[in-house]
C-alpha cells in the first residue's frame, strides 16, 4: 500500500474510471434484459440484482465505503436494519388480513 496520499488518490482515480465503465455496461445489460420480456418475477429479480451490483460499486468506490471508519459502518448497519423493516411493511400488510373476513370475501368474489 502507498504511504503517499497523492499516490493513493491517483490509484483511486483508476478505480473510479473502471467503475464508471462497469456502471455503463451494467446499465446497457439492464435495458437489454428488459427487452427479453422475461416472466415478471424473473425480470424483477434480474433488474434488482443488477441494480444492487451497481449500487454496491457506487457506495464502495465513489463513496469510499470499501475502506471507511467503524463509526460509518455502525450508522449504516442500523440504517440497513430499519430499511429491511421498511421493506417488510408490505408483507406485514398482507399478513394482517390473512384469514380475516375481508380476505375471505375477496376470495369468494374471485371464485364466482
Amino acid at each position: 500500500m502507498h504511504s503517499d496520499p497523492a499516490a493513493n488518490v491517483k490509484k483511486s482515480v483508476r478505480s473510479y474510471i473502471t467503475v464508471f465503465v462497469m456502471l455503463m455496461i451494467f446499465t446497457v445489460i439492464t435495458v437489454a434484459a428488459s427487452r427479453f420480456h422475461l416472466a415478471v418475477p424473473v425480470g424483477i429479480t434480474v433488474a434488482l440484482i443488477i441494480a444492487l451490483m451497481k449500487g454496491s460499486m457506487v457506495a464502495g468506490v465513489f463513496m469510499h465505503l470499501s475502506h471507511e471508519k467503524q463509526w460509518i459502518y455502525g450508522v449504516l448497519l442500523l440504517t440497513v436494519v430499519f430499511f429491511i423493516v421498511l421493506m417488510l411493511v408490505p408483507v406485514f400488510t398482507v399478513m394482517d388480513s390473512t384469514g380475516t373476513a375481508i380476505q375471505a370475501a375477496a376470495a369468494g368474489r374471485g371464485g364466482h
Binding site: 439492464t30 435495458v31 428488459s34 415478471v40 425480470g43 424483477i44 433488474a47 434488482l48 443488477i50 441494480a51 451497481k54 449500487g55 457506487v58
Partner: peptide, 10 residues
C-alpha cells in the same frame, strides 16, 4: 440506479 429499473423497466 434503483428508480430507473423499478419505474421504467419493470
Amino acid at each position: 440506479i434503483f428508480l430507473f429499473p423499478v419505474l421504467y423497466l419493470l
